[in-house]
């Protein structure tokens, strides 16, 4: 049996994404990958899920300014794909957890102890009162000003 014979591709609209992903999760499907393509109308986003050796792909067509909801609340592993997809293609994805703020590829942010990596981790870590006043939220303006390890 060849691979493509057990692969289904289903076109869905953005507002049905979470509902469909939820039902796949309940049916025992696991995430295989997420990939984006640039198209003339914006982007195409493909979410592939595996159940046994079968594969199912959900395909979304989104405009350049349209947002896609994150599926990380259903599949934690999606965070790596979604952050990379936003970083490399510019796809707007809402509420990724954890959120690398357009920096999973690490081109803008100084290395270790980067403040952008504080957010969205699985452990709540209160900032001590005597800590230097480093803003915890990353913003394009703050990123632009950042040139060295704080």
């Amino acid at each position: 049996m060849s691979e493509h014979e057990t692969h289904e591709v289903e076109n869905i609209s953005t507002n049905l994404l979470l509902q469909t992903v939820d039902s796949l999760l309940l049916d025992g499907w696991r995430l295989i990958q997420v990939l984006a393509l640039s198209t003339t109308e914006g982007y195409e986003v493909n979410y592939s899920f595996g159940g046994g050796y079968a594969m199912k792909t959900l395909r979304l067509h989104v405009g350049p300014k349209q947002s896609v909801p994150s599926i990380t609340s259903y599949y934690a592993a999606a965070a790596y794909y979604e952050n990379e997809m936003r970083d490399l293609f510019g796809v707007r994805i809402e509420r990724i957890h954890p959120d690398w703020h357009n920096d999973i590829m690490g081109e803008k942010t100084p290395r270790a102890f980067s403040r952008v990596r504080v957010q969205g981790t699985s452990v709540e870590r209160p900032v001590p009162l005597d800590a230097p006043p480093v803003p915890l939220a990353s913003s394009p303006a703050a990123d632009a000003q950042e040139g060295a390890i704080k």
Binding site: F113, R125, P126, V127, P132
Partner: peptide, 19 residues
């Protein structure tokens, strides 16, 4: 690096890698 803005009380953040 205890006391870094990344670490809470009793926690230490250390870099591992890239080298």
């Amino acid at each position: 690096m205890s006391g870094s803005p990344n670490a809470g009380p009793g926690l230490t953040v250390i870099p591992f890698g890239p080298q």
